[in-house]
């Protein structure tokens, strides 16, 4: 099997190199963008690309190992991609001052509330279902 020998180094590269794997994630994103545009759905291309990748993992068309290193790398450094967006503040000088302080307070208080409500809802439901699970195991 001649072509097997040609492809093995390629496969090894895909399994080991996180840059190549990141490129593969980029391909999924591009496909997602194209699909989202073509279908006219109000969905970001990244989400469509993620759905595509998940579907391929689930049906066995793509091994998780082929993108895992790249994906972990991207996720670990994701905060970097938000940094340039913060500089948009330069165009909104009105936010430096009392108005900015008010907005900071709103975001801080609201986000704290959101986090507490979400976490408590999930955790209380969790304890509740755990208790039920425990009972059914006993029964």
């Amino acid at each position: 099997m001649m072509h097997r020998n040609i492809f093995t180094p390629l496969q090894r590269l895909l399994r080991r190199n996180r840059l190549v794997q990141t490129g593969l994630l980029g391909l999924f994103w591009t496909a997602g963008e194209i699909l989202a545009q073509a279908s006219g759905l109000p969905l970001p291309g990244g989400i469509v690309g993620m759905a595509l990748a998940l579907a391929l993992f689930l049906c066995g068309g793509l091994k998780v190992g082929s993108v895992k290193r790249g994906a972990n790398w991207m996720l670990a450094e994701m905060l970097l991609f938000f940094v340039p967006a913060v500089l948009a503040l330069l165009d909104h000088r009105e936010l430096f001052g009392l108005l900015g302080l008010k907005i900071f307070a709103i975001i801080a208080v609201s986000t704290t509330a959101v986090m507490c409500v979400t976490a408590l809802t999930v955790d209380l439901c969790y304890r509740w279902t755990e208790r039920d699970d425990g009972r059914s195991v006993v029964a």
Binding site: T22, L25, G26, F28, W29, G32, E33, P44, G45, G46, I47, G49, M50, A53, L54, F57, L58, V64, V67, K68, G70, A71, N72, M74, L75, M78, L80, F81, F82, V83, P84, A85
Partner: peptide, 22 residues
């Protein structure tokens, strides 16, 4: 000059497929 960094949020979103699958 730096928009390409923000654009990488796209592939980063795709990357979530891995932990979600796991």
């Amino acid at each position: 000059g730096t928009h390409w960094l923000v654009a990488l949020l796209g592939p980063a979103t795709v990357a979530f497929a891995v932990p979600i699958y796991e």
